[in-house]
Amino acid sequence: MTTSRSFVLICTVGIFCFISYNMVRMPALSLFAESLGAGPERIGLIVSVSTLTGVLLKLPSGALSDIYGRRFLLRIGVVAFGLPPFLYPFITSLDALTALRFLHGLATAIFAPSALATVAELYRERRGAALGTYTACTQSGSLLGPFLGGYLIHAAGFSTAFVTAGVFGCVAMVLFYSLHLDVSVPQRKEQGTAAVLSEMWKGFSVVAKNTKVLITSVTDAAKMIANGALMAFLPLYGVSAGLNPGEVGLLFTVQACTSFFSKPIMGRVSDRMGRQPLILLGLSICAGTFVCIPHVSMFPVLLLLSAGFGFGEAVVSSSSSALVADSSEFKTLGAGMGMQGTIMDIGHASGPLLAGLLIASLSYPMAFGVIAGVQLLAAGVFWVTMKRM
Score class of each variant (00 low, 15 high):
residue 8 V to Q: 12
residue 12 T to H: 13
residue 13 V to R: 06
residue 13 V to H: 12
residue 42 R to C: 06
residue 45 L to H: 07
residue 48 S to R: 08
residue 49 V to G: 01
residue 50 S to C: 07
residue 52 L to K: 15
residue 60 P to L: 05
residue 62 G to P: 05
residue 62 G to W: 06
residue 68 Y to Q: 11
residue 70 R to C: 05
residue 77 G to F: 03
residue 78 V to E: 07
residue 84 P to D: 00
residue 85 P to D: 01
residue 91 I to A: 04
residue 94 L to Q: 10
residue 104 H to S: 05
residue 116 L to G: 10
residue 117 A to L: 03
residue 128 G to K: 13
residue 131 L to H: 15
residue 132 G to Q: 11
residue 137 C to Y: 04
residue 148 L to R: 08
residue 153 I to D: 10
residue 157 G to T: 01
residue 158 F to N: 15
residue 161 A to P: 12
residue 161 A to C: 11
residue 162 F to E: 11
residue 179 L to M: 15
residue 202 K to R: 09
residue 210 N to E: 11
residue 210 N to C: 13
residue 215 I to G: 08
residue 219 T to E: 06
residue 221 A to T: 01
residue 223 K to I: 05
residue 228 G to E: 01
residue 229 A to D: 13
residue 231 M to Y: 04
residue 234 L to E: 02
residue 234 L to G: 02
residue 238 G to F: 00
residue 239 V to K: 08
residue 240 S to A: 14
residue 242 G to D: 08
residue 245 P to K: 11
residue 250 L to W: 08
residue 260 F to A: 03
residue 264 P to R: 14
residue 269 V to N: 06
residue 270 S to T: 05
residue 277 P to H: 02
residue 277 P to S: 14
residue 277 P to L: 15
residue 278 L to G: 01
residue 285 I to M: 05
residue 291 V to R: 03
residue 292 C to I: 04
residue 298 M to D: 03
residue 303 L to T: 09
residue 303 L to F: 13
residue 306 S to H: 09
residue 306 S to T: 13
residue 316 V to L: 05
residue 327 S to I: 14
residue 328 S to D: 03
residue 341 G to Q: 07
residue 351 G to P: 02
residue 361 S to V: 07
residue 362 L to G: 00
residue 363 S to Q: 09
residue 364 Y to Q: 02
residue 368 F to T: 14
residue 368 F to E: 10
residue 373 G to R: 02
residue 374 V to I: 13
residue 377 L to C: 01
residue 377 L to K: 00
residue 381 V to K: 00
